[in-house]
Design a protein around this nucleic acid. Structure first.
Length: 425
RNA sequence: GGAGAGGUGGCUGAGCGGUCGAAAGCGGCGGUCUUGAAAACCGUUGUGGGGCGACCCACCGGGGGUUCGAAUCCCUCCCUCUCCGCCA
């Protein structure tokens, strides 16, 4: 959510900034609502003031044992009028709130301009495609040949876009998670957290998935909760309605969770393989930081995610998303794209974003600024470190042999009892 | 699932329907004293919002109601704690 003050006083600037990301702000409606809000609020508060004053007078008169009838007659019709303006004001405020929740974040000045994902800008590259002297297979062929990746069985148990992994592949999937968690807790200074996988609507509103993206979520109607689409939701909401002291910052969390996405609206897209599943595992990095350091934090967080790819020996590139490709809540995003030899292309494996105060305002996540002594909004960031399923795909396709065997990257071997080639156990 | 107790400011904890944004204590901040520190003493100390301003408004778990007036009464929802049952 954007700052209501700015939305009020510098509406045209906001509209121009949002235009960069292709969003048309309905300034006419907002101005009309704001005018109405102002007059209603002033009127309401004046009526409240009068009510308080006369209630006080009546109280004092009663204490002196005076006759109250004339006083009570005077205020007889005050209540109705106040109730009406209060109701009108509440309706207008609700309307403004509803509108505000649908306005995306303003792109940072450094975000490259663009009209589609084709305008994203490659920032840097690591490594090179693996030197395979044969025609590489994709992870589906590899996994099924090994008998360790089964989409048909998963479909019988659940539906399409689910998978059953088994044997060495299932173990390597787990090893990848362990490796990433150890990396970020031991070397990058993140605090591990374990959180609920079902969250309420308020939490999802806080991070920006609701109200606009309900169709992407799995709802559980009975307790009225949603399966998390990313650990970002519960972890960022840890700061809900909290005022942190400066010593607690920066606050860095790492969290491994399953993620659930309905993928509505992506029929026919990535239907093959592990790339786009209804359920997948992710290791998520979340930071809560002072506003003056959030862009350094974004660079740092991105590097932390990159280290995971580097240690695994995977070829990747870092891409700055252009204004058109930016997520709803993000002010700036770097995508990490890993090379997938079986597909002959780069695929997103991590997305690292600075949300500035956009989420913090919805969540009321603040810190006490010692310079002002006041509570002020934090900046929030997050990034995948990494998406585990897609990492497994990249490893399988990058470490394949001509005979279809898959070597185990060095860093994973300690987690797999020294296993050098994926086996069936 | 059954029975009971309770949700008040950073914390603990008072609060006959009226002068309560709310006692007191702790903590925090500033000061006096001191070579310095502690102790003691004095002062100060919630959040959000509106108005060009003088100022004003809202908030005592959430929502609704009664009333001229609600932290205080009523309804409802949520949450926490204790005991019993059940289950991991």
């Amino acid at each position: 959510m954007l700052d209501p003050q700015v939305l009020r006083n510098r509406l045209d600037e906001v509209a121009a900034a949002l235009k960069r990301r292709g969003f048309d702000l309905d300034t006419e409606t907002l101005e009309r609502l704001e005018t109405r809000r102002k007059s209603l609020q002033v009127e309401t508060q004046e009526l409240q003031r009068r009510r308080n004053a006369s209630a006080k007078t009546i109280g004092e008169a009663k204490a002196r044992g005076q006759d109250l009838n004339s006083l009570l007659a005077e205020v007889a019709d005050q209540g109705d009028r106040l109730a009406r303006t209060e109701a009108d004001l509440a309706a207008v405020l609700e309307e403004i709130e509803a509108q505000s929740l649908l306005i995306p974040n303003i792109p940072h000045a450094s975000v490259p301009p663009g009209t589609s994902e084709d305008d994203n800008v490659e920032i840097r590259r690591f490594g090179a495609p693996p030197d395979l002297s044969f025609e590489p297979k994709d992870h589906v062929d590899l996994g099924q040949a090994l008998g360790m990746m089964d989409f048909e069985t998963a479909a019988r148990i659940a539906a399409t876009r689910f998978v059953v992994l088994s044997g060495g592949l299932a173990r390597m999937h787990r090893a990848l998670t362990q490796f990433m968690m150890d990396l970020h807790t031991r070397e990058h200074g993140y605090r591990e957290v374990y959180v609920p996988y079902l969250v309420n609507a308020q939490a999802l509103r806080g991070t920006g998935q609701l109200p606009k993206f309900a169709q992407d979520l799995f709802a559980v109607p009975e307790p009225g909760l949603y399966l998390i689409p990313t650990a970002e939701v519960p972890v960022t909401n840890l700061a809900h309605d909290r005022i942190l002291s400066p010593e607690e910052l920066p606050c860095r969390y790492v969290c491994h969770t399953p993620c659930f996405r309905s993928e509505a609206g992506s029929y026919g897209k990535d239907t093959r393989g592990l790339i786009r599943q209804h359920q997948f595992e992710k290791v998520e990095l979340v930071q809560l930081v002072r506003p003056d350091g959030s862009y350094e934090a974004l660079e740092e967080l991105t590097r932390h995610a990159e280290v995971a790819l580097q240690r695994l020996g995977l070829h990747y590139r870092v891409v700055a998303l252009c204004t058109a490709d930016l997520g709803f809540a993000s002010a700036k995003t770097y995508d990490l794209e890993v090379w997938m030899p079986g597909q002959g292309r780069f695929r997103e494996i991590s997305s690292c974003s600075n949300f500035e105060s956009f989420q913090a305002r919805r969540i009321k996540a603040r810190w006490r600024n010692p310079d002002t002594g006041r509570p002020e909004l934090l900046h929030t960031l997050n990034g995948s470190g990494l998406a585990v399923g897609r990492t497994l795909v990249a490893v399988m396709e990058s470490y394949q042999e001509a005979d279809g065997r898959i070597r185990v990257p060095e860093v994973l071997r300690p987690y797999l009892g020294g296993m050098e080639v994926v086996d069936g156990r």
